[in-house]
Design a protein around this nucleic acid. Structure first.
Lengths: 210, 210
DNA sequence: GGAAAATACGAATATACGCTCGCATTTTAT
DNA sequence: ATAAAATGCGAGCGTATATTCGTATTTTCC
């Protein structure tokens, strides 16, 4: 194991070694997130990021090879948060009813999307996504969560992956649409989404001919 | 009724009057769609659009005030197609089972999204969306369709709008996710989505305590 | 035929911004 | 103390490209 911290993949050009530079990188990412949220991807300029971070553009490019890498760093930070939120809702729910479990899931997802909605929206709808393969660690973990929920809810193993994909896409679709309209806080919406999810999971446990 | 065709809103600068200019506009939109699909929003340049369309940039700017307006024109064209697809699935289905009606709906939506997937993706994930209010004619018509389906499926009027929003967002979420993975053609996916929708509608017609 | 309107042209302009590079400063190591 | 490494600086270069504008051509209409 190398003693030095190496730059991860191509997201960083050089890894910060000293305390000072670590602070610089933090400041840059912090500022970048704020500017991305405020101005959107189109108005996201490295010069302004550096200015707001209180460092020079030169320093910025010492750690990030380009603009996109900076956005990627922010995205990763966010995805980790989403995953963490999902993990919380995946505890020992053995004793809970389907509805309770579903409500937990939805609360988690909604909560994760409620923090910094503007940034979220930009990250989601504007920043060109680096070709994200289904091999992506996040994707895998994410689907895994949903598959667990599907299995727990329907009690069947077969078709679990497809069901998980459909379910996750549906939930995200509803949550994202709500986020765009600023209605993420609405309990009525959460309840309605809960009905959708519950109904689906129940239908899978007693399938009809089709 | 004005004899002359007027430029719609701010999407056009000048309305084409003669046959010649109508052909020009068509060629521009056509070329723009191709380039948008091929190069994405970032690589979408008006100069190339003009070149591919076989006209000059000057002509382009005679009919479109800016780059975004051009993309908007394309988006509108697509939205109209989606709406048309939805309308087809909303005919006289009185005699059909819920599953049949749902299958029709999904077939329509999937079909609308199957045409020119690359363009679709760019339009959806890259082109900055002009603030689309819920007053938008398309949004209204779109929700209306879903509300009809909800009403027909669940037989209740109450909560129809919320249900329509949830349902449409869920369907779009699944379809878009599938489009991103290039799995729109999969019958298994359509079937699974059908189960989701049917289960939801059924659950609404015999509600549980909640 | 001729005037006016519509359409077409495309070189040139204006601007914005990503990113580099040479050098200054600070920290670490010996 | 001093060399070497790490970090920081920011003016400016290079480029890309959206948009304009003066002019040329075509069509319409009388």
């Amino acid at each position: 194991m190398a003693t030095r911290i190496r730059a991860q993949r191509r997201s960083m050009r050089k890894a910060p070694q000293q305390q000072r530079s670590r602070a610089t990188v933090d400041a840059i990412v912090e500022a970048a997130a704020r500017i991305l949220a405020r101005r959107g991807w189109a108005g996201f300029t490295t010069n302004e990021v550096a200015a707001v971070a209180g460092v020079s553009v030169g320093s910025l490019y010492q750690y990030f090879p380009n603009k996109l890498a900076l956005a990627e760093a922010i995205r990763r930070r966010h995805l980790d948060a989403v995953l963490a939120a999902l993990s919380v809702s995946g505890g020992d729910d053995e004793g809970l009813t389907l509805e309770r479990r579903v409500a937990r899931l939805i609360d988690g997802v909604v909560a994760a999307h409620s923090v910094n909605q503007a940034l979220h929206h930009v990250l989601l709808d504007e920043v060109p996504l680096t070709p994200r393969s289904s091999q992506d660690a996040f994707e895998i973990e994410y689907l895994q969560r949903y598959q667990t929920i599907v299995a727990a809810g329907s009690g069947r193993r077969a078709g679990g992956e497809l069901a998980a994909r459909v379910l996750s896409a549906a939930v995200e679709g509803v949550v994202h649409a709500a986020a765009r309209r600023g209605e993420l806080g609405s309990p009525a919406l959460k309840a309605e989404l809960g009905k959708l999810v519950s109904a689906y999971l129940r239908s899978r446990s007693r399938p009809r001919g089709g």
